[in-house]
Write a protein that binds this DNA or RNA. Structure first.
Ligand SMILES: [Zn+2]
Ligand SMILES: [Zn+2]
Ligand SMILES: [Zn+2]
Ligand SMILES: [Zn+2]
Lengths: 129, 129
DNA sequence: ACTTGACTCTATAGTTACTATAGGTTTTAC
DNA sequence: GTAAAACCTATAGTAACTATAGAGTCAAGT
């Protein structure tokens, strides 16, 4: 299939596919005589792997590491495990941060009774302190 | 005070201060004869307002809007309220996303017993499906 | 007066993960 | 045969900074 079909099948935009290729996340595809990219099912699987990782917010660099690891099936999977653990830690950290943000934003929102002037707005007062 | 002192007092890096100025979040400061920026307490307060907003993950564009609103003290504060509500919605949405990520990552991590080969690793299997 | 070092200046490039053009070529359909 | 659709490369833009390069300014010490 050509890139347009891969794009539709995978749900990745054409530009993103070409971008992943440039970044080394997808192997260089065959080309037609006219230089069009040609993909097969293997390429689709590769792309879906990347998409799945991205849906977990794993960075492109880490995805590359995972791909490299995948290509060494005999080795211990402890690096994989570590990478996922680190990603989990990252997510947890960000969740904690967002929880704090949420609390402060809610607190602020509650100090505004909406039919007020900006001068007397509790939100602006909070932000100013 | 000069930019170095403002940087230390505020905890913002010098480059960030200049960047905020270029983006219109801080008013253009006075300059010495030798073209060095000169700040007073008002500038520090402005910067702290920006910092407080940023700590709530409010985008620079929205901070600019808030600053514009602050300069119209007579008007209704409903726009301020709306902006904060939107920010809160954004944070909540992201928290939901992260919660889903966390669940899937934890689920994945639990399928890896660490002293395995990559070939047999549950994490890789999850990512491949 | 001169030099050294700390501080500051502007302008520019890099970061992440894409997205969006511009300008050109190839293929497909009528 | 021609027009539209799909494809190609290369480049610039996004957000919110950070990090240089190369030059100018200023205070202290000799
Ligand atoms: Zn999944
Ligand atoms: Zn209010
Ligand atoms: Zn706060
Ligand atoms: Zn494993």
């Amino acid at each position: 299939m050509k890139i347009g079909e891969l794009s539709k099948t995978s749900g990745c935009s054409i530009q993103t596919i070409r971008f992943y290729e440039k970044e080394g996340l997808l192997s260089d595809p065959e080309r037609t005589e006219g230089n069009f990219r040609l993909y097969d099912v293997t390429a689709l699987k590769q792309l879906e792997f990347v998409k799945h990782c991205r849906s977990l917010d794993i960075s492109l660099i880490d995805i590359k590491r995972l791909i490299d690891l995948k290509n060494k099936p005999e080795e211990s999977c402890s690096s994989v495990n570590a990478l996922i653990a680190q990603q989990l830690a990252l997510v947890k950290k960000r969740m904690k941060e967002l929880k704090a943000l949420k609390n402060e934003l809610q607190q602020m929102a509650s100090t505004c009774n909406s039919d007020n002037t900006i001068e007397g707005c509790g939100i602006i007062k909070s932000l100013d302190s």
